[in-house]
Design a binder for these strands. Structure first.
Lengths: 245, 245
DNA sequence: TATGCCGCGGTTGTCAGACAATCTGTTTCA
DNA sequence: TGAAACAGATTGTCTGACAACCGCGGCATA
């Protein structure tokens, strides 16, 4: 409200000015979640920047998962769901060099251990049966066929079993990249799938048996094994499907 | 390489075209970490978009922690350090409504438990002594004084003790927001600081005693207690210092 | 020779204006 | 009554221009 904006704006760039302005409007509650923003030209006047700069600031907040905008309608504050605020990760993880990607595996190990333990504690008998069924279908599937898809579904079921959207939103982009390597499709490493299949069976069994600590240990071990495979194989840059970018 | 870019560009927006183009250059290794990008005008020609659109795409990747740009010099691919790729979170976390912020506490509980356990296993005797000393200084500090600063330093020491930059980069923005509430400075809740101080002493003692599981349990409990305080007090929007936006 | 200053070219940062594409609500006509 | 056409507003995109800034080479000077 004060007129001292100019003093701050002198040392802050125009885009920064606009970004801070938008952040303040959201942080103070002037703009609540789901609420529609003023039009770009109005915001330009308010912040004293050009439309280009304002749009760059909006794009920053869009990537951060705070804003969404639709043509013709306007921009609005997002619900800031866990999925949305982790959208930045979905963009970065596919771009990480292998070494950086492997740095994420300690986190992955802890979180996958956690969700497995939670699944063992919370899953219904029906869900557990379905999990075991999926483990068998996955074991029977051919590596080049839909095994990747089944593997994703199997692990998603466990992740969802923990009923924590934040952790799920963190794990999903990491797991998604791991899928892109398709190490089982290389003939030399086809035997590794048996080890993986066996781990899936054991984890499912521990969950059905309502044994959280065994499920945690097995899941963490499964992640550790996957990491060691990637470290040894050191696959080159993945071929990206259009949707992963 | 092919000339079918136009076919894809027809249904993708200009900014999306540019973003995908940049992502491909990085993912395929054409642009390695630390390498400098071509100038904006060159990239505009390459992708067939205007400079405005290209700049919006670059800003997206900058927020995601993939690019950095300096005036006069040019843009370059970042090292994608854990800190950088979590920069999006640093922007979002201060903007979350309280309910969304509280959703992060399960993750925080797991990770703070983990770092405390790791600290107990890895910390040197000297670091342990320093940790206990800091717990005492923090307990002796006045809430309105530099207690917040000491609290941050104490927990940072534990986090660093786990020697995992990814987890540290995840925890820091979350902890930073918690600090902004300054619940101990409200007279009604001043007594809570004693509970907190006692927890700090116990955690430090468990770490010095090289008892990872006790350290984990106490740290997780500390987080749970903090969450319950925030749930009960339900403080309003925080007053942001200039640097937190 | 060594050193500090200056200006040049290139790059990013910012702005203004214009037009296209899209959506929403209203109006109009069959 | 219903559907199509219209009008207004908003975002998406492009163009051109200029300012701010950086790095480098040349030049004058001690």
């Amino acid at each position: 409200m004060h007129a001292d904006d100019s003093a701050d704006a002198d040392r802050a760039s125009a885009v920064e000015t606009a970004r801070r302005g938008l952040c303040q409007m959201i942080a103070t509650g002037e703009l609540a979640a789901g609420q529609r923003l003023a039009s770009e030209v109005e915001l330009c006047e308010r912040f004293g920047v050009s439309r280009s700069s304002l749009r760059e600031a909006q794009k920053m907040l869009t990537v951060a998962g705070v804003l969404t905008s639709r043509p013709g309608t306007g921009s609005s504050v997002s619900q800031m769901s866990p999925r949305e605020i982790m959208s930045g990760l979905e963009m970065v993880v596919p771009l990480l060099p292998l070494d950086r990607f492997l740095e994420l595996f300690t986190l992955r190990e802890i979180l996958e251990g956690h969700v497995a333990a939670q699944a063992a504690a919370k899953m219904t008998a029906a869900e557990g049966a379905r999990l075991q069924e999926m483990a068998e279908r996955l074991a029977a599937a051919d590596p080049s066929d839909n095994a990747q898809r089944l593997d994703a579904d199997y692990h998603d079921l466990i992740i969802d079993g923990a009923q924590d959207e934040v952790i799920a939103a963190l794990l999903h982009p990491i797991r998604k990249r791991g899928r892109d390597y398709r190490i089982f499709e290389v003939e030399t490493h086809a035997a590794l799938k048996d080890v993986s299949d066996q781990a899936h069976r054991q984890i499912a069994a521990a969950i059905v048996a309502r044994d959280p600590e065994s499920a945690r240990f097995l899941a963490m071990q499964h992640v550790r094994v996957t990491r060691s495979w990637l470290e040894q194989i050191r696959p080159g840059p993945v071929l990206f499907s259009a949707d992963s970018l």
